Amino acid sequence: MTLNVLFAARPERWESYEPILKSEFARQGLDVALSTDHPPETVDYIIYAPNGPVQDFTAYTRCKAVMNLWAGVEQIVGNETLTQPLTRMVEEGLTGGMAEWVTGHTLRYHLEMDLDLARKPGDWSQHNPPLARDRPVTILGLGQLGQAAGQMLAGIGFPVTGWSRTQKDIEGITCLSGDEGLIEALKTAQVLVLLLPDTPATTNIINPESLALLPKGAVILNPGRGPLIDDDALLAALDLGQVAHATLDVFRTEPLPEDHPYWHHPKVTVTPHIAAETRPATAARVVAENIRRGEAGEPFLYLVDRDQGY
């Protein structure tokens, strides 16, 4: 039987995804009609992006699953018209890209690269950073992305502490959980990496109280979600020197407005939501595998827990 699969991401993504998806469907032995305009009542599966054309799922009465191309689902999980199973994207390209972004910016701070980038002719002043083993890193959020980033940093020699809502056991990472665990994780964080999902429980988790727990002069990297940070509190901590620098990739409003203080603060680096991008080649494998699973009656990979919000 031919399966009707709707590609419901932005039109400019179609060209890169279409041939790769068709190749993966064939490799899985799936007979798929892939299109951007199937009539809703004929659609078996939806490949979805929150900024795509589909926002109301009511008419997709035959649809067996909606497969998000993004790691984050906060823009869709509360959609009351979506009653079908929802999966999030976990794929090796996105995961590897995030781990590399976190590692690169951690090393930028650890090696004090900015001092050399700003060096003037004739300035021969020398700086000797500690070894990685003496620079503790804390990662808030130990999902696929947090685990990958933490293990990459641990492989270089950084002592890595990770915190999550529920207790984890991950090789190379000291894992903490709960309220007391969060306090302990923050107190040692010379570099703090934010990779939590955006939920009511995580909104403003970086606030005046949590910022005060950090070692003076800590650095914050946020490639996770903008609402994790109380922006006014972070700006105050930067001005006071409690936080030495913040590298921010995600924001409450995107693109970040031109008049936002982050653009103009000397201790803030803004990157335009580029820390991790879904790679079509590797994402297509996950989509095809989930459709195969759906047709075989097997559990979907990376099924979203609506109650938890991720």
Results as ranks from 00 to 15, higher is better:
residue 131 L to H: 12
residue 142 L to I: 04
residue 219 V to T: 11
residue 99 A to Q: 08
residue 176 L to V: 15
residue 78 G to C: 11
residue 254 E to G: 11
residue 219 V to N: 01
residue 117 L to A: 06
residue 191 V to D: 00
residue 215 P to I: 05
residue 95 T to E: 00
residue 185 A to M: 11
residue 64 K to T: 02
residue 15 E to P: 10
residue 162 G to D: 08
residue 93 G to E: 13
residue 206 I to S: 01
residue 36 T to W: 01
residue 174 T to L: 04
residue 174 T to C: 11
residue 109 Y to M: 13
residue 286 V to K: 00
residue 71 A to W: 02
residue 115 L to D: 06
residue 125 S to H: 10
residue 49 A to K: 08
residue 39 P to T: 01
residue 263 W to Y: 15
residue 34 L to A: 04
residue 11 P to I: 14
residue 160 V to F: 08
residue 33 A to E: 12
residue 34 L to N: 02
residue 263 W to T: 10
residue 187 K to S: 14
residue 236 A to G: 03
residue 59 A to R: 14
residue 163 W to Y: 15
residue 227 P to K: 10
residue 78 G to Y: 12
residue 88 R to K: 03
residue 137 V to F: 02
residue 90 V to Q: 09
residue 252 R to V: 13
residue 102 V to H: 03
residue 175 C to G: 06
residue 234 L to Y: 06
residue 71 A to V: 13
residue 163 W to H: 06
residue 104 G to I: 02
residue 100 E to W: 05
residue 209 E to T: 10
residue 179 D to G: 01
residue 89 M to I: 12
residue 291 I to V: 12
residue 170 I to V: 15
residue 55 Q to P: 07
residue 144 Q to D: 04
residue 260 H to I: 09
residue 42 T to P: 01
residue 161 T to A: 04
residue 275 A to C: 14
residue 77 V to E: 03
residue 256 L to W: 06
residue 163 W to G: 04
residue 140 L to R: 01
residue 83 T to V: 15
residue 15 E to T: 09
residue 69 L to Q: 04
residue 33 A to D: 13
residue 162 G to V: 11
residue 131 L to T: 05
residue 161 T to H: 05
residue 302 Y to D: 10
residue 298 E to N: 00
residue 33 A to N: 15
residue 190 Q to R: 04
residue 111 L to C: 07
residue 54 V to P: 13
residue 166 T to M: 12
residue 168 K to V: 08
residue 248 L to Q: 10
residue 114 D to I: 02
residue 65 A to H: 14
residue 188 T to H: 14
residue 34 L to V: 05
residue 26 A to F: 11
residue 228 L to K: 02
residue 194 L to Y: 11
residue 196 L to V: 06
residue 129 P to N: 14
residue 262 Y to I: 06
residue 191 V to Q: 07
residue 302 Y to T: 12
residue 182 L to Q: 15
residue 140 L to D: 00
residue 119 R to Q: 10
residue 136 P to W: 11
residue 142 L to D: 01
residue 2 T to Q: 04
residue 118 A to C: 11
residue 200 P to F: 13
